[in-house]
């Protein structure tokens, strides 16, 4: 579904990604791991066109998106849940959600379905986004992305700042999306969380791919895990 081929991305004049390649298939979950500053968020931003790669190619559903405008990339069916959630603070939850509504080539999710998945939303609709707790904001952010009919979801640090129970809920949602055929890339510093749902893993180190393979392989090989992820596991 998504093929990233040897992208070099820069922030200003500083290169942050060096020849990064990865791919995700429909219904697959790819965990993108690595230390802080390894470039994980940059990969997501490169896919979305927010920080465009200078070299390399990114293809979504066979079509190159590396030079397309961000809103076109989003309309192609890529949803984003950024690490800082980014809800519009002065808008209500209902308005925030409605901003995400759009139709793409992929399956549309209705508001009813989404509230069904995230039941607390029912009571939060008229609350102003800035009054929500971290977990509630996360829920709204995911729901908002889902309302955009994604084929691929990009999760940036979904467990960040959340209580373990909520993290479980989030992982449950990711599994549910997977079952519905939606692909996901999950960026995480907390490797164990990601390994809980991932099929494949890519580990980044200083902007380069240090390892890529099956999640099961990494989960079972403690030595490999320690070497790649150090104290992060």
């Amino acid at each position: 579904m998504l093929d990233v081929t040897a992208i070099d991305t820069f922030y200003g004049e500083t290169q942050t990604l060096f020849g990064v390649s990865l791919s995700v298939q429909a219904g697959q979950v790819l965990a993108l791991l690595g230390a802080n500053g390894a470039g994980k968020t940059t990969v997501l931003r490169s896919i979305l066109g927010l920080t465009r790669p200078r070299r390399g190619d990114i293809r979504f559903e066979g079509r190159s998106i590396v030079t397309r405008a961000t809103h076109e990339i989003a309309r192609a069916g890529i949803g984003w849940v950024p690490d800082d959630r980014r809800l519009c603070p002065t808008l209500t939850v209902a308005k925030n959600l409605s901003l995400g509504e759009k139709r793409t080539a992929f399956r549309a999710w209705s508001m009813t379905e989404v509230i069904d998945i995230f039941s607390p939303l029912k009571y939060l609709m008229s609350r102003e986004a800035e009054t929500l707790s971290g977990g509630e904001m996360q829920m709204v952010a995911i729901a908002r992305a889902l309302l955009g009919s994604p084929g691929l979801m990009l999760f940036d640090e979904p467990s960040q700042g959340l209580a373990p129970k909520i993290v479980d809920d989030v992982l449950g949602v990711i599994r549910r999306l997977k079952a519905a055929g939606i692909a996901s890339i999950v960026v995480e510093q907390n490797a164990d969380v990601a390994l809980g749902v991932a099929d494949r893993v890519v580990v980044l180190l200083h902007g380069q791919v240090a390892w890529s393979g099956e999640a099961a392989a990494l989960a079972t090989d403690a030595g490999l895990k320690r070497r790649l992820l150090g104290g992060l596991a």
Partner: peptide, 23 residues
Amino acid sequence: RFGAMVKAGAHDSEIVQALGIDL
């Protein structure tokens, strides 16, 4: 909805684009 887009876009131009809105 236009107004909501404007408010959101004024606050954060990136997320608005990532939601598929032509900024």
